[in-house]
């Protein structure tokens, strides 16, 4: 067996990655977008380890966001969008948590959140945009004032200022940088040198990873140095941004992973049904998260037949003709 000596210190299990890098109250950015490339395996492990009071920072998220909220791991949320595409236009446990007043939340837009990650990555205190002018995003502060004094929480949601380069009335919106404690990214490939390659759309994963103090990458495959360096134009992150690497095939299930597998309509429909009911949702967590001792066991439950159905056609990158109702 290859011991991958270049990344030996970073290679670890899901259990160890969460134990070492995630604490109660951690501020966490999750990669992916709605029903694609969510870091599910690591999210399930966070739930199993009973991590509490997470401060999640997201743009548009779906399954990982919803299951973490549903399991009671999340205290605070900065978010642009909580939805699972056509499977749940609004994420169900997210919706319930807000309606019941169970979590603290702050709304932004996708572009605003992405700019906030970019500001963190660039080491500047804020970025600016015109998006938000006239919107209630700039009228309602979601977080109570006392939170605003805490580390890694901006002392206000945004600021509006006059463009200093224009003498005429010209307003811009300033958005505070985000520097999360941890970013969780699921990638298709990590090279044995630690280089990360995300295939397909990268969403805001690059900005999220570079804005964070610690980056945990779960991946489908670890590939030879000769492969990852043959075509470096395809690569996403250099090795030195990555603190933990966990090889977890199907680690984004039931969300999709381009060129490897599609999102799993059967599981997303099951989730939609159970998420509506508190008791069924608890049973779902007992069965699919607490009740499995390894990711292999989780995949066994998903079943070979289903995994073959969602297997991506390597040319198209998705499962052609998959029944997605």
């Amino acid at each position: 067996m290859n011991n991958y000596h270049e990344i030996a210190e970073k290679l670890m299990s899901l259990e160890e990655a969460v134990k070492r890098f995630i604490n109660d109250g951690s501020q966490i950015a999750i990669g992916g977008f709605t029903i694609v490339r969510n870091p599910m395996a690591i999210a399930y492990e966070i739930i199993r380890q009973g991590i509490k009071d997470i401060h999640l920072v997201c743009h548009s998220h779906g399954q990982a966001l919803d299951v973490l909220i549903g399991a009671g791991c999340v205290k605070r949320l900065e978010i642009a969008y909580g939805g699972n595409g056509r499977y749940a236009p609004t994420c169900i446990r997210f919706k319930k948590a807000i309606q019941r007043g169970e979590i603290q939340f702050e709304d932004y837009s996708n572009y605003q959140m992405t700019l906030r990650f970019l500001a963190g990555a660039l080491g500047v205190p804020f970025m600016l945009t015109k998006s938000g002018l006239g919107s209630d995003l700039l009228n309602n502060e979601g977080f109570p004032q006392e939170i605003r004094k805490e580390p890694k929480v901006a002392n206000k949601k945004f600021a509006v200022m006059q463009n200093p380069f224009n003498e005429e009335d010209d307003k811009v919106v300033l958005l505070p940088a985000l520097t999360p404690d941890v970013a969780l990214i699921h990638a298709q490939y990590v090279g044995e040198d630690g280089t990360v390659r995300i295939k397909g759309l990268t969403f805001a994963d690059i900005e999220q990873a570079k804005s964070a103090d610690v980056v945990i990458v779960t991946c489908e495959e670890i590939v030879p140095r000769s492969f990852i360096r043959l075509d470096p134009d395809q690569n996403t992150l250099p090795p030195f941004f990555v603190d933990a690497i966990v090889k977890v095939p199907y680690g984004a299930h039931p969300t999709g992973c381009y060129t490897f597998y599609d999102y799993d309509p059967k599981h997303l429909n099951l989730y939609k049904k159970v998420a509506e009911d508190d008791r069924l949702f608890k049973e779902y967590l007992d069965e699919w998260v607490y009740g499995v001792s390894s990711y292999d066991e989780y995949l066994n439950k998903v079943g070979t037949e289903n995994l073959l159905k969602i297997k991506a056609n390597p040319v198209f990158g998705y499962a052609v003709g998959l029944d997605r109702k």
Partner: peptide, 27 residues
């Protein structure tokens, strides 16, 4: 778009594109 995407992140929006990028480029 040989099949209808079910979300804006759907794998089907990544096939046959002139470019696959991210949110900053899109905006």
């Amino acid at each position: 778009l040989e099949e209808i995407p079910m979300a804006v992140s759907d794998l089907r929006v990544m096939y046959g594109t002139c470019l696959n990028s991210g949110l900053i480029e899109a905006f």
